[in-house]
Nucleic acid binder design. Structure first.
Length: 828
RNA sequence: GCCGGAGUGGCGGAACUGGCAGACGCACCAGACUCAAAAUCUGGCGGGGCUCAACACCCCGUGCGGGUUCGAAUCCCGCCUCCGGCACCA
């Protein structure tokens, strides 16, 4: 009687074995190709559930596969422990973030160990350690010195609950992505990274990213939001002022009947000051600005505005154009001011109708005659240019170019490009972050902290309960310093950096995590980077992934790295649902890996997580399905242990040269499965790889049922299949496979063995089933030796009763022959 | 509105560039083993028709309506529904 599958002790045993032998530790080596596999690192949280864990299982299966294939695989893990998410969690559980982080990291490491994940822990990174964030401060200084970091006023997103500003990327449908509070817009001095300087490179280099999912590329493209058009300046009548506008439709410039400023626009005050319009306009603006971001940007929101009393001069016609303020113009896109062409823009149209402003069509659609007074909606299509002076009478697209040429020649404006992307606001008025390494001196102004004084350490004893002001500003010992330049009294910057700054370069730290002379060792980075496969959630499409690309490009331009893109290939895993909702602690539908381990072992959880569906698609977790995966491991266990064979010498010597039909078929299945599984692993199609492994297991069960236990050839054929099965399954369920491997008398660990190679000649089919169709409907099938001439197959088919039935009395109009697949007889 | 993705049995999902739809697994049904149950093993399992029944055979079937093709889950056109992203973007 075979032993039982005691998964708990087996898993403990092999985890110890791997750890004792430091199996997962990697170093640079030139004799193998490198492969850098990176999972997005987590921030410390109380409990991992299977929804999170699936990501790491995908990564582990793939990293193990690549290792067995002979790659030198870097597979590291770290903690995104510094920043708002951690601080909020710590506050919630009434702990200091240091304590919270320590506790979570301890827990999570243990969970990873129990899952059997092959991380090289000698490379562990903790962003809240001064060694790490000191180099993040160094990074800040590099950007500062190169004019890519600046402090300036800006309309920023303010979360009233988190009491801090948020980057645009952290605002989701007008709400804080972390706490869901409605975000407010305020004017505050903040630190920014000039990511907009890199808009063009970030956009252009998207085409280098073949290994990225289409939708992520599209999302970034849209986020950058390039639009090409024309910018020009108008003089304001009776004021020493001018206003600049941007348009994509300069061909409609003769149709301008009013101008609009955003309520926040600084010109609003200038134009109305001391006039009868001052009071009502100010009142209007205050009301408009009080509207939340959501109300303000919804298309349903009624457009409203007010006349400022001022006029601009049309640059081409010289006509007086009234200047309005309206809620539908946004300060943070373009110049915060627009030229309004009601005849050819729906928003302007609605506004003009409401306030009885003239509508002048300047583009005539073919076969129609637009009249401003009777139009029901704006016309945004192409047509013939009219009412446009010398440019009338030609197609508007041509007129557009000519008007642009003309205005450029007259020095009224220029062809211009506008981006939706905003500079990256990186300062936070919160405690748990890296202090921005800047000192304010009364004499010298803003002084960067000298590099040799880094890190600027975050003091631990700080009251960080939510206040709205940077908690560090309360800590005198921290704030008061000598100016590094003049030695006079000075104060530190009290704001800290955003979480996303640390994660924008962590992948560069893993190759040399203990480097203390530089942020990273250049040679190590050149060896390992770019990341060959990066895996994480789609929610980082426009945040973290954009920031990381930006930082890499900056470091490239400053000569620190040779590559322009950090992640060659990106894989976005799907989310796990249970009972119809996304698995999450707050919904109470989580499946804990610990409970699963206890009951079925981690190999079962790993197997099921990969079998449940394609890893890049969302999926529904089923507790019954887990049982099925567990049963399969039991079947494999019995199959291998009940017919255990240890070999003296080489298995290959015992395999039959030719063998019986059953033997040939078994070997064919074995080798076909190796091919199929290898191919599926390559595309991370673990679900179909597992299905193929299950089929091989079923085939082996059939084979062993009719095999002659005394026949050496039969036993060898069977053993070949079982050995292949165990090897193919090992990246997915490594513990049981190492145990079976060792029991078969082979040398563990499979992690160090070579991935099996298929013998293609053995995998080849001997006989093939040809489908016979009549008029495209399947009527029969014929087994023939592989490679049979299709004309012969047609002959055979015509001789068959089933086929003759349909052909008889009809004419065969056409015969379609697909070699080794099918024939289709078209009869009339 | 724009950009992605998806829609296939009771369920999760297969079907690589058009070629036997439903692999693999779950659930379910029947049988074997058992005093019994669990576990395990064997078989069945899209819908309908024909048939005493089985084998066989026939028809229908991949969100809906068209089309291309000898042949469509797959390609094209027009819709519907769901999910994700962006959105008064000038």
């Amino acid at each position: 009687m075979a032993d039982t599958y005691d998964f708990n002790s087996i898993e403990r045993k092999w985890q110890d074995y791997w750890q004792e032998r430091s199996l997962f530790h990697v170093e640079r080596r030139e004799d193998r190709p490198k492969f850098y596999y990176l999972d997005m690192y987590p921030y410390p949280s109380g409990e991992l559930h299977m929804g999170h864990v699936r990501n790491y299982i995908i990564g582990d299966a793939f990293a193990r596969y690549r290792t067995m294939q002979g790659f030198n695989v870097l597979h590291p893990m770290g903690w995104d422990s510094l920043g708002l998410p951690t601080e909020n969690a710590a506050i919630k559980y009434d702990m200091h973030p240091v304590e919270w982080t320590e506790q979570c990291v301890r827990n999570m490491k243990q969970q990873f160990a129990k899952l059997g994940i092959s991380y090289d822990w000698s490379r562990e990174i903790d962003t809240s350690s001064p060694e790490y964030y000191g180099w993040t401060q160094w990074l800040f200084l590099q950007l500062y010195k190169n004019d890519l970091a600046y402090r300036g006023p800006g309309l920023v997103n303010w979360c009233p609950d988190c009491q801090t500003v948020l980057a645009n990327e952290q605002v989701v449908s007008g709400c804080c992505e972390r706490c869901d509070a409605t975000v407010e817009r305020t004017d505050r001095e903040q630190w920014f990274f000039r990511i907009t300087d890199y808009a063009e490179k970030l956009l252009g280099d998207l085409e280098l990213l073949d290994g990225w999912p289409e939708r992520v590329v599209r999302m970034q493209e849209h986020w950058i939001g390039k639009s090409e058009g024309f910018s020009f300046t108008l003089q304001v009548e009776d004021h020493d002022a001018e206003m600049e506008v941007f348009t994509t439709r300069i061909d409609t410039v003769y149709g301008v009947t009013f101008m609009v400023l955003a309520p926040e626009h600084p010109l609003v005050e200038t134009l109305t000051e001391g006039t009868e319009f001052e009071e009502p306009v100010r009142e209007f603006c205050q009301r408009a600005m009080a509207e939340s971001v959501i109300e303000r940007t919804s298309e349903e929101t009624e457009k409203h505005g007010i006349f400022t009393g001022a006029y601009a001069t049309h640059p081409l016609t010289g006509e007086r154009v009234p200047i309005w303020v309206a809620n539908y113009v946004m300060m943070d896109y373009g110049t915060g001011a627009i030229m309004a062409v009601p005849a050819h823009d729906q928003r302007d149209f609605e506004f003009a109708r409401k306030y009885e402003i003239p509508i002048i069509p300047v583009i005539q659609p073919e076969g129609e005659e637009l009249v401003g007074e009777t139009m029901n909606e704006s016309y945004i299509g192409d047509g013939e240019q009219i009412n446009s002076g010398e440019f009338s009478g030609q197609p508007n697209r041509e007129a557009l170019e000519q008007i642009a040429d003309h205005m450029e020649a007259e020095d009224i404006g220029r062809r211009d490009v506008n981006y939706r992307l905003r500079d990256w606001c990186i300062s936070r008025q919160r405690y748990w972050g890296a202090p921005i390494p800047v000192i304010y001196c009364e004499e010298c102004g803003t002084v960067p902290v000298p590099e040799e004084d880094l890190p600027v350490e975050l003091p631990e004893d700080v009251d960080f309960s939510v206040t709205g002001n940077a908690p560090l500003s309360q800590v005198a010992e921290f704030m008061n310093v000598e100016c590094p330049e003049c030695g006079g009294p000075a104060k530190r910057e009290a704001d800290t950096m955003d979480t996303f700054v640390y994660s924008a370069w962590y992948y560069l730290r893993f190759p040399s995590p203990h480097e203390d002379e530089a942020p990273f060792n250049k040679d190590d980075v050149e060896y390992w980077l770019p990341v060959d496969q990066y895996v994480g959630g789609i929610e980082h499409a426009t945040g973290h992934l954009m920031y990381s690309r930006f930082i890499t490009k900056v470091l490239h331009d400053l000569g620190w790295v040779s590559f322009r893109e950090p992640f060659a290939s990106l894989f976005t895993q799907g989310m796990v649902y249970k009972d119809g909702a996304k698995m999450s602690k707050s919904r109470g539908n989580v499946v804990s890996p610990d409970a699963l381990n206890e009951k079925y072992g981690t190999d079962t959880g790993r197997l099921y997580s990969l079998f449940v569906g394609p890893p890049d698609q969302d999926t529904e977790w089923s507790d019954e399905g887990v049982v099925g995966s567990h049963r399969f491991l039991w079947r494999v266990w019995r199959l291998a242990t009940e017919h255990m064979d240890a070999w003296d010498g080489q298995l290959a010597d015992l395999l039959p040269e030719d063998g019986t039909e059953a033997q040939r078929e078994m070997r064919r299945n074995t080798h076909q499965t190796i091919m199929k599984v290898s191919d599926d692993f390559e595309g991370m199609r673990f679900n179909t790889a597992i299905a193929a492994i299950m089929e091989l297991s079923n085939d082996l069960t059939d084979f062993v049922g009719s095999m002659d236990a005394d026949d050496a050839a039969d036993r060898a054929v069977f053993s070949e299949g079982v050995r292949a099965l165990v090897m193919l399954l090992s990246p997915i369920a490594p513990h049981i496979c190492d145990e079976l491997w060792a029991r078969m008398g082979e040398e563990p660990s499979l992690f160090e063995r070579d991935w099996p190679e298929a013998d293609e000649s053995l995998a080849e089919e001997e006989s093939i089933t040809i489908v016979v169709q009549i008029n495209g409907k399947v009527r029969d099938s014929i087994d023939v030796p592989a490679g049979t001439d299709m004309d012969d197959v047609v002959e055979m088919a015509l001789g068959r009763e089933k086929v003759a039935k349909y052909v008889e009395g009809n004419e065969i109009a056409k015969t379609i022959k697909v070699p080794d697949k099918l024939i289709n007889l078209v009869v009339k």
